[in-house]
Every structure is written in C-alpha cells, then in structure tokens.
Amino acid sequence: MSWRIRAEHTSRYRYAGPVYSSYNEARVTPLTTTAQLVLDASVKVEPSTRPYRYLDYWGSVVHAFDIQQPHGELVVTGRSVVETSVPRPGSTAATWSQLDDALLRDDHAEVLAATAWVPADERIAEIAAELRAANDPETAARAAVAWVRDQLSYVSGSTGVHTSAVEAWEGGAGVCQDFAHLALAALRAMGIPARYCSGYLHPNADAGVGMTMEGESHAWVEYWTGDWHAVDPTIGWPIGERHVLVARGRDYGDVAPLKGVFHGGPTGDLQVKVNLTRLG
C-alpha cells in the first residue's frame, strides 16, 4: 500500500534589524528513491528571488539563492507531492567478518567515521562491543536502536541543533535528531555503516484523505547489513509510507534544511512549520 502525501515546509526567519544581504541553501525537496516517488516539488522564497537548483554530493536537491535587498523577514517554503511506500525488505545476511572486511570498510569509510555530531566515544564503543558480541549484525543493529530508545527520552527543546550524540546521551533526552545521532554512534562503533536521513513524518496513521496535519521535520537512520535498511529510532519502527525522505548524509550537518549567512540583522528568530496532507 502506498500513500500520496503533500508536504509544505515553511521556514520563517524574523530579524531584529534589516538584513542587507543574504546567501542561503535550502534542502527541502524530497528524494526520489525505490520506495518513494516525487510527483511535484517547488521552492518559494520571500523576498522574491530566483533559486539555483543543483544536486549535491549526497544526491540531495539543493536550492541556493541570494537576496540583495534589505529585508526584515525571510520565508522559504518547500512544497512537494510524494508517493511513499514501505521499502521492500533487503538482505540482512551480512556477517561480522564481511563487515570487517578491509575493502568493505573502505567503501563505506565516510559513513563509518566519526563526525562532529557523531563523535567517537569510548563508553558507547564498549556498549557497542557488548551488543556486537551477542548478536549477528542485523540483530545487533536492532538492539542498538532499542538501546537508544532506552537511553533517551523524547523531550522537545532539550537539545539544540549543535548538540552531539554524546552530549544528548549524557543529558538523557533529545529530539529526533539526537535519537538518530546516537543510533549512528552505536552502529558505527559496531562497524555497521550507517547514515543520517532527514525528512518528514506524517503524525497520524489513520489520517483521512485531504486532512492537513501539522507535522515536523524528522530524522532517522539507515544502516547496512547486506542491504541498506531504514529505521526510525525516535518512534522505534521501521520506515513506512508515513515517512517522506528528503536528504541523506553523515550527520545533520550534511542535510540541514536551511543554512546560510547574512549581513545585518543581527540575530533572527526562526519558526518552522511543516504541514502534511494525505492526498491518497
């Protein structure tokens, strides 16, 4: 069964003073994958400007734009209509010795290495070693996700965009971004290639067609145990038709929905709103 979802992702910056010049990149357009088909997508920027669209290293759709007129507010709206489905199950047959193979590790070097958001940590490495010793890779990966859900409680606003996996873990709480980062830390520590996914999650499994729900930007992970598998550590389920995938990377830094620099202001106040409508 598949869903058709319309996503409307609005980021609104309000600045304390006029901004004279601003350069930004938005990653708010969903990807087309084997499990997901983008039917329509557009990005609108106010003040009005003409974005330049390109695909980045990770294959994400980027809209880059600059604004050269004084403005007190910046609104970036990504609209898309996506057909989603439950991914077909792939192989989970990889063994530890396959995963430990030097060539395989080299192929996946960048999604095994530590990053700013997913730093190497000895305590996590110990836990990972225990999980690894007791399980085959696929089971260990699931155990790692369960471990994350056990360690973190979901507390909105408990962490910031720069919070690392280790910091969130020490705090015992976080949001989807932190759940994903901590899962990556555990998976990578076990030697399982793992990557960060950003996107949207439709909040209601029983939503009626045409009903618009307020959703949120969401994050989950994909790991490799013979094939790539997606799992959502925040809700604890595999990815389904309610997930809309926007971008993949090593961590949040590779997929941030909006990033940029501006001159003036100075600081801005950001409001993000994601509206999701099930169309079918």
Partner: peptide
C-alpha cells in the same frame, strides 16, 4: 582507497 578521499579534511563535498 576510498578513505584517502572521503576522510580527508580537504575533500570538499561542496
């Protein structure tokens, strides 16, 4: 090897 590239701080994905 991949890691020569993908783990180099000077490999700019941008």
């Amino acid at each position: 090897p991949h890691r020569l590239v993908t783990t180099s701080v000077h490999f700019h994905r941008a």
